[in-house]
Design a protein around this nucleic acid. Structure first.
Length: 921
RNA sequence: GCCGAGGUGGCGAAAUUGGCAGACGCGCCAGACUUAGGAUCUGGUUCCGAAAGGAGUAGGGGUUCAAGUCCCCUCCUCGGCACCA
């Protein structure tokens, strides 16, 4: 392949030039309310990309897919007269940077800076109209100061279940003081600490020895770490947790007003996993004196209580030790030992084969009075419900399997058909042949007999509540968010410990900057790497003035600085954990609105304007059923369907409750771009060698071709394979557009084509052309609004093909095409615009053209004629022809006659403007 | 197993929501211009058939004047979840 082959158009020259022009003129900078150049009369549009993690590998062609879509929207909305907020930034804390740093011996700050620079230059080469003045970086102290500040807000808040929202803990303290006048300081403190939205817990966590950190449940897949696939084991550790479960119901309910794909909403609802049921208390039989004599279970099928023939506790259940009989002690101890050692992977692998051990103890079924054995088994999870179940083997697959394996009794209490009249019944005679877990009618259930499942549930709950044996309950699968990591490259907690008690730092002490460690390897123990910074660990108060520039507060390691630290007399030590990578991405969309604010995480006025569109103060949005406001369009991959989107919603709601933001939800509309596969139809990966680098595409075909192909491949949301010949297709299209305007002279130089001429009144003199051009303006505008970029491009190809055939080519027709193609191919169109319409300013600053509907109206239309649903003929009729005339013309067609002679015409269907169908037999 | 998204030419895909199936692009075929063509332009291209015609949107059934689109059943692909009582 010859590299000096002449390019069909000189994109390599004009693309960088226009990128420079946009940058110099700050074409895509949008001022905030109150800043010079801000125009309050324009509506706002906030279009957001999920910001990238700047990996060392650089961009692949999957990144620019969503980015191009938002860029087209942003440029289009700007042309439509909106104040467009379209920012970009870096999610730069995280494990890969740290691991790369460990491997290469470089400081993660250095590698992160290099990666960011690389990503940024790659994005700039694609010609995206980002407002780079609003760039954020989660590792910038001026940014994570506010991540830490938000943590402090969480720390200083509790969830008020009556008001159903977060409130300052100070309110809780006052209430507690009033309620328990003589409570000791320590007791009250313990109470308050156990109600904070950020709290410390000793619960078992997912510890990954290889990564040297704990992971959230969501980061563990099949018992292995999501990052790297290393084994994960459970062990109890002291960790920071965020009380997201308090928001479970609101996180479900407030999805309703959001303009999100239904599948993502379902995903989130399933993840939160609300289930309605009942808690039921079971008395322990022959209860030894002095111990709590009931076990509480959670069940969604309280109607099957009469069929509960045994109980199962999670191996970790606190009552196991007290319950177990002497004969069973060894077996139980062995089983519990094994269960705790077992990784989640092993538990998952053994899904089919149930295991368990009898404790030797019995409980009393509260309704039948029957003695039922109590077992332990690891199919009962300690973290869900009460960690104990009543087993109804006839109506639950798991209990069925378990009962069959250990020969426990199976009693049928639900029938798919109504078998017994209300109040009838009797004792179960034979064991059922199979497990039935659907809804039906109660049998062998005393007073419930004959009731359909829903009524039986209500009735049994009523009875249990009356006797104090149980109550209606709602349970969620969602667990609290494990928020600490044993890593170096993350936000330090703004927390110090003194005498075993934690305390959040004052805002004036933020940011807490990580120590300039040279050795940040995992310690190999649960002790975080920050423990190596002996001087840093000893807390010394540092105070920043409000509005201080803290962005320079995070130097690269310098030994002299570390040694120069004053000896500290305080006994307080810093929290050594760091925050997970999700922290920074939970609120970055807020920071973009006002990224330089040194006094607040986001200025109130800027936040109000960019989320609600108003600059005047008004009462916050309260209804959950109306649009919530916030980001107008958020585009990103489905991989963040639950984690990021759920965490960000949670933080946003807390900030909303505390009055820091104006809307209850952050992202009004969400769109997922589809995955781009390699040319082989496989997922792109280094190991498959099918990764396409956008830089290579730009080098060969230019940025506009890359952008256009990304959008032409297919619907934004679809998964679709890359194709280099497809790139060539759109590249040829761009070359055709180029040659509409340009031609080569004898010297081989490009100059304006002689065919481009001013043709006065061309729209009247050339109706067919005018129709195509105006139909294209209409369709492209509509398609952009619908995010149907592929069909918009197809229409512009049609328009281009029509223009190619014209000579002369009316200059204003060309200009219209350039205007609507501009958001897609901004460089080429600016270049041609400067040729066709010099001194007219930047195309990007122009308004979107209007189409003339008059020109789209046809005098005559073509109608297909079907006989018995089969196309036979096409007729041309006047637009407003009478139905009877159309029928007559249709019936008279020779091809129609061929198929109707000898038959009776039963019916003629005329759909005005659409078709004619003649029914004959 | 459960949840979700899909299945349309040789390929990527369109189809005003029930109204001409295959727009647009790739590829392929033919022609034009050319010393040349992996450039450009013009035309053709769902399948079977010489044609008339027939068949056709994963497969089967149904509703309808009319179904890619609506309803029922079956199969396949991809993504996610997976003992949540």
């Amino acid at each position: 392949m010859s590299t000096d082959r002449r390019r069909p158009f000189p994109f390599d020259q004009f693309e960088p030039r226009w990128q420079r022009v946009w940058d110099e003129r700050q074409t895509f900078h949008t001022p905030n309310p109150g800043e010079p150049g801000f125009d309050a009369t324009r509506p706002k549009f906030y279009v957001l990309d999920m910001f990238p993690y700047p990996s060392g590998a650089g961009l692949h062609v999957g990144h620019p897919e969503g980015y191009t879509a938002t860029d087209i929207i942003g440029r289009y909305k700007k042309m439509r007269g909106f104040n467009v907020l379209h920012p970009m930034g870096w999610d730069a804390f995280g494990l890969p940077a740290e691991q790369y740093a460990i491997k290469t011996g470089q400081h993660p700050r250095a590698t992160t800076e290099a990666n960011v620079a690389n990503f940024k230059s790659q994005l700039q080469r694609i010609g995206f109209g980002y407002d780079w003045q609003r760039e954020v970086n989660t590792t910038d102290p001026a940014y994570f100061k506010w991540t830490q500040w938000i943590f402090v807000q969480l720390y200083n808040s509790h969830f008020d279940t009556e008001k159903n929202c977060a409130r300052p803990v100070s309110e809780l303290i006052e209430k507690r003081k009033a309620e328990f006048l003589n409570e000791s300081e320590d007791k009250r403190r313990a109470f308050v600490d156990s109600h904070r939205l950020a709290y410390v817990s000793d619960a078992p966590v997912n510890w990954c020895p290889e990564l040297g950190t704990v992971l959230a449940n969501e980061e563990v897949i099949d018992g292995k770490s999501e990052v790297g696939g290393h084994p994960v084991e459970r062990r109890p550790m002291r960790q920071w947790m965020l009380r997201i479960t308090a928001y479970a119901q609101r996180l479900i309910d407030e999805l309703d007003g959001l303009d999100w794909p239904e599948s993502i909403k379902i995903h989130q609802r399933n993840w939160i996993g609300r289930s309605e049921g009942a808690e039921v208390k079971f008395k322990i039989a022959d209860c030894p004196p002095g111990m709590d004599e009931t076990i509480t279970v959670f069940t969604t099928r309280p109607d099957t209580l009469y069929g509960a023939t045994y109980m199962v506790l999670a191996p970790e259940h606190v009552l196991v030790e007290e319950l177990v009989t002497e004969e069973q002690a060894t077996a139980v101890e062995e089983y519990r030992e094994k269960a705790t050692r077992k990784s989640d992977l092993e538990r998952a692998e053994l899904t089919k084969d149930k295991t368990g051990v009898f404790t030797g103890a019995f409980a009393i079924n509260p309704v039948s009075g029957e003695r039922i054995p109590i077992w332990i088994a690891d199919y009962v999870l300690t973290g869900y419900g009460t960690g104990a179940i009543m087993a109804v083997p006839a109506h639950d697959e798991r209990d069925w399997e378990f009962a069959r394996k250990f020969a426990l009794p199976i009693r049928e209490v639900v029938s798919p058909e109504p078998r017994l009249a209300l109040g009838g019944g009797g004792v179960c005679d034979a064991e059922p042949l199979e497990c039935f877990h659907g809804e039906g009618y109660a049998i062998h259930s005393g007073p419930l007999d004959g009731l359909p499942t829903a009524a039986a549930k209500a009735e049994i709950i009523r009875r249990l509540e009356a006797e104090g044996l149980g109550k209606k309950t709602i349970n969620f699968k969602l667990r609290d968010w494990l928020f600490s990591r044993q890593r170096y490259w993350g936000e330090p907690f703004p927390v110090v410990w003194e005498n075993g008690k934690h305390r959040a730092l004052d805002e004036s002490e933020l940011p807490v900057v990580p120590p300039a460690l040279t050795d940040f390897k995992p310690t190999g123990t649960p002790e975080p790497p920050l423990s190596k910074a002996k001087d840093w660990v000893r807390y010394q108060p540092v105070h920043h003035e409000r509005g201080d520039d803290v962005s320079k507060a995070f130097p690269l390691p310098s030994l002299s600085e570390i040694e120069g630290v004053e000896p500290c007399h305080s006994t307080a030590t810093r929290e050594l954990n760091t925050m997970p990578q999700w922290a920074g991405s939970c609120w970055y969309y807020l920071r973009y609105m006002d990224n330089k604010n040194a006094d607040r995480f986001v200025g109130a006025e800027a936040e109000r304007y960019w989320t609600t569109g108003t600059t005047s103060h008004q009462s916050p949005v309260t209804s959950h059923k109306v649009p919530h406001g916030g980001v107008d369009l958020y585009v990103g991959g489905t991989e963040h369907a639950v984690l990021h989107l759920l965490y960000a919603r949670f933080w946003h709601k807390v900030l909303f409750d505390l009055g820091h933001v104006s809307t209850p939800e952050p992202f009004q509309r969400l769109v997922n771009q589809g995955l781009i596969l390699g040319e082989d139809g496989q997922k792109m990966s280094k190991s498959r060698g099918n990764v396409v680098n956008p830089d290579d595409v730009i080098k060969e075909y230019g940025a506009d071709a890359l952008r256009l192909y990304e959008m032409f491949m297919g619907p934004l949301e679809a998964t679709k394979p890359w194709s280099m010949s497809g790139v060539e297709g759109v590249f040829r299209f761009l070359a055709r557009v180029w040659r509409l305007v340009m031609e080569e002279n004898q010297a081989g130089e490009w100059q304006r084509s002689a065919a481009v001429q001013d043709v006065p009144d061309w729209e009247q003199s050339n109706k067919p052309l005018a129709k195509v051009v105006h139909a294209t303006i209409k369709k492209v505008g509509e398609d952009i609004e619908d995010l149907s970029f592929n069909t918009a491009i197809a229409q512009m190809m049609v328009c281009t093909n029509a223009l190619t055939a014209e000579n002369p080519r009316p200059r204003t027709a060309m200009q219209l095409l350039l205007q609507i193609l501009n958001p897609f191919a901004p460089h080429l169109t600016e270049e041609l615009w400067s040729v066709v319409n010099p001194n007219a300013g930047l195309l990007a600053d122009l308004a979107w053209p209007a189409y003339d509907p008059e020109l789209l109206i046809e005098d005559e239309i073509e109608l297909p004629v079907q006989v018995n649903g089969k196309l036979r003929e096409k007729i041309v009729v006047k637009k407003d022809a009478a139905q009877s005339d159309i029928e007559a013309i249709a019936l008279a067609c020779p091809r129609v006659l061929e198929h109707t002679t000898g038959k009776t015409v039963r019916k003629i269907v005329v759909v005005p403007g659409r078709l004619v169908n003649i029914v004959a037999s």
